[in-house]
């Protein structure tokens, strides 16, 4: 385990906050917002997949719940954007609890858990695609209205700062996990569930809490996505792309670490842009590179970039290797 200090986290967030002030071009600003959204989704994935060792292949279910709540509440019920954001996050936790309740009751883990989360996300996608309430296949649009109450800004640096604020919360949640009894339980059940149970850990309750927090964070990413792009449909909100990007970023960055998901999101998306520039018009090159990086990182750096950096001598504690 690597345990960054709070001050380190503060420096990282501050550094990221300074970047937009330096006067980024619109496209870089856009990219950075997207990075933060993916980082947040990945932080959510990391709570469950990284700390608790339950790899989900269907975090789109949470992302979509947040995104749809955000847009549906605002457009159909005239709810204020900020309140919609809170409800969206809560809905993510609820969906997490629902999926968790069903699957953990049946004791699903490993491949089975991955498969069932995938199936839930797909069911959500098909339902959202065919229900009028969610705009059906046409998707739903949010109106472009700038101003603080609408959570849309003429100067998009403000939006970036808000997204960054959420990423900071994600960092704090992970930091807290590493310093709390609850976090220790999670890791214990990842390493050996039976042993944890024997020691008196209420495994079911711990997993339920983990999936609810995980769902809430990823739903927040969904809310921000909807608010930034102002349009969602079933394939965007519940599509497998986000399940995969969240998982990628967390694993490549370092699953079960505080900074991993953020680092992973920045590196992967940055690399993706770079590949696109180098590869010109060849389709699929960026994703191809993602896939290669995933396989390589599982093979050579199963603990992610965070650990790789540590073991390359930035500070090589013996602990890092056993984590």
């Amino acid at each position: 385990m690597t345990r960054p200090r709070l001050s380190t986290l503060a420096i990282i967030v501050a550094a990221l906050a300074v970047v937009p002030l330096a006067g980024l071009s619109g496209s870089l600003l856009n990219l950075m917002i997207f990075m933060m959204i993916i980082a947040l989704a990945a932080q959510g994935w990391n709570i469950l997949g990284g700390y608790a060792g339950l790899s989900s292949f269907g975090h789109a279910a949470f992302f979509g719940a947040g995104a749809y709540a955000m847009v549906v509440l605002q457009t159909r019920f005239g709810v204020n954007a900020w309140i919609a954001l809170v409800i969206g996050i809560a809905l993510g936790a609820l969906v997490g609890a629902f999926i968790g309740f069903l699957s953990f009751r049946s004791g699903l883990k490993g491949s089975y858990f991955a498969l069932i989360t995938l199936a839930f996300a797909e069911v959500a996608r098909i339902l959202a695609n065919s229900t009028n309430f969610t705009g059906g296949a046409a998707g739903i649009l949010l109106k472009l209205q700038t101003g603080l109450p609408y959570l849309q800004f003429a100067d998009r640096r403000y939006f970036l700062l808000i997204a960054l604020g959420f990423v900071a919360i994600g960092l704090l949640v992970s930091w807290w996990l590493e310093h709390s009894r609850f976090g220790a339980y999670l890791v214990a059940l990842r390493e050996n569930e039976q042993a944890a149970q024997a020691l008196g850990v209420d495994v079911f309750a711990v997993k339920m809490k983990a999936i609810a927090i995980s769902g809430a964070l990823t739903a927040a990413a969904g809310c921000l996505y909807a608010q930034n792009y102002l349009f969602i449909d079933a394939n965007v909100a519940f599509g497998s792309w986000i399940s995969i990007e969240a998982l990628f970023a967390a694993i490549v960055g370092g699953s079960g670490t505080v900074i991993g998901p953020l680092l992973g999101a920045i590196v992967l998306l940055g690399l993706g842009e770079l590949t696109k520039m180098v590869s010109g018009g060849i389709p699929g090159m960026d994703l191809l590179v993602f896939g290669v990086i995933l396989v390589l990182s599982v093979a050579y750096s199963p603990n992610g970039l965070v650990m790789l950096m540590k073991s390359l001598g930035l500070r090589a504690p013996a602990k890092a290797r056993e984590a």
């Binding site: 993602f290 896939g291 599982v298």
Partner: peptide, 15 residues
């Protein structure tokens, strides 16, 4: 590890 490697492979192959 296997879950993730096969997922990575599927993305590599598809693209």
């Amino acid at each position: 590890g296997i879950l993730l490697v096969t997922l990575g492979l599927s993305i590599i192959i598809e693209n």
